[in-house]
Design a protein around this nucleic acid. Structure first.
Lengths: 199, 199
DNA sequence: CATGTTTTTGACAGCATGTCAAATATCTAC
DNA sequence: GTAGATATTTGACATGCTGTCAAAAACATG
């Protein structure tokens, strides 16, 4: 066999940065080839297609991001946990120069048809999978908070509400790019769920 | 002069349907040419570019949609108004076969760079403009409700919260296509803002 | 009926994804 | 050490996209 001349993980990292900054459709295989120093044909040989390359790169990101969220949700009062969760979310959306937004939300809205039909069903499942896992983390945190008497509502409904707000923040970030506004909305959401005082 | 062989408005309607179903990037000028019966070159002659065609088609849609929202927000108790608002929102996202989702949210997430740089700054402003106008409508409704004693919170903050949730609903619609779930989230949002009982 | 102006039409350039055959470089077996 | 097998690299190609342009066509106006 002839050995590969590039590092698999390096390519995934560099490719994902391209996808994140320019979108899956906006990033071209030529761009990725230029940035990685790997020729376009080699990328196709190694990954099969642009979508397959994206999926691998996305799974890498999803794992890292989920771990960071889990850590943010894991310490302090419920209010502190949720605050850390939203902080990390907004910071993630606003990372990069210029800010890159939310890759999950962007990827989701870039898809072809709706669920069921659609060629990029694999991508949709990857995006939906991360959202579901984040929702589960939040719900667990709320349930634990409820047992400690820090929250008295429906953890499932509240988690769904929170994930909805985070997706909305991703959209407003693209519309207005107003980071203080995003943080105000996040704080307001926590107040709505836990009450304005103490919590 | 030679007269135009097609109806300007017909083309805008048909083109927007293409954009709505397949996204701005996903819909090709060839598709629109086929559906309208107007040759590709004629479309470029009449509208200049795909983005310019989209912008005109989008403004048409935005005007109609805003009028429908205004009507939904204009009658009954505050709770009824907000319920009608969310109903219309979700129904709009789920219209078409297969459901077409939210064209504003999709268009926004399809854009190139973030605010400031980016070539499609005109499109971003069109999307942000509709979102801002909807937010203003909701805020007015909440303010009026507050004067009538139906709401005692901050109308500006609550309106921002509501618009954030609607953007989140647009994203979750693409992720899961679960319409009952969307309606539950909407109802829960109203309960959070107005209180679970009466309102 | 002739002239002028706009629309229409078809061909072209440039860039995208994806495919493929040929060339290349290493590993393995002897 | 050498020869063969095998996977990677490389460049050319097909196809589809946006956008441009010059030539042809069709109507309005004098």
């Amino acid at each position: 066999m002839r050995p590969r001349e590039f590092d698999h993980d390096d390519v995934l990292r560099i490719a994902f940065d391209q996808f994140w900054r320019n979108g899956v459709r906006g990033a071209s295989m030529s761009d990725i080839a230029r940035d990685t120093g790997v020729q376009r044909g080699s990328l196709y040989n190694a990954f099969g297609s642009k979508e397959a390359l994206f999926l691998q790169a996305y799974e890498r990101y999803a794992g890292d991001y989920l771990a960071a969220l889990q850590k943010a949700l894991g310490a302090g009062s419920l209010r502190k946990r949720l605050t850390a969760f939203f902080d990390l979310t907004v910071t993630n959306f606003r990372s990069g120069t210029p800010p890159r937004g939310c890759p999950t939300t962007r990827g989701l809205m870039e898809l072809g048809a709706a669920e069921g039909e659609g060629l990029d069903e694999d991508a949709r499942q990857a995006f939906a999978g991360l959202i579901s896992r984040i929702t589960a983390l939040v719900q667990d945190t709320l349930s634990a908070g409820a047992e400690r008497g820090e929250f008295n509502g429906n953890p499932a409904a509240a988690a769904l509400h929170i994930i909805t707000v985070t997706r909305g923040l991703a959209v407003l970030e693209r519309a207005f790019g107003d980071e203080p506004q995003l943080r105000k909305i996040a704080a307001h959401t926590i107040d709505l769920l836990l009450g304005r005082t103490g919590g």
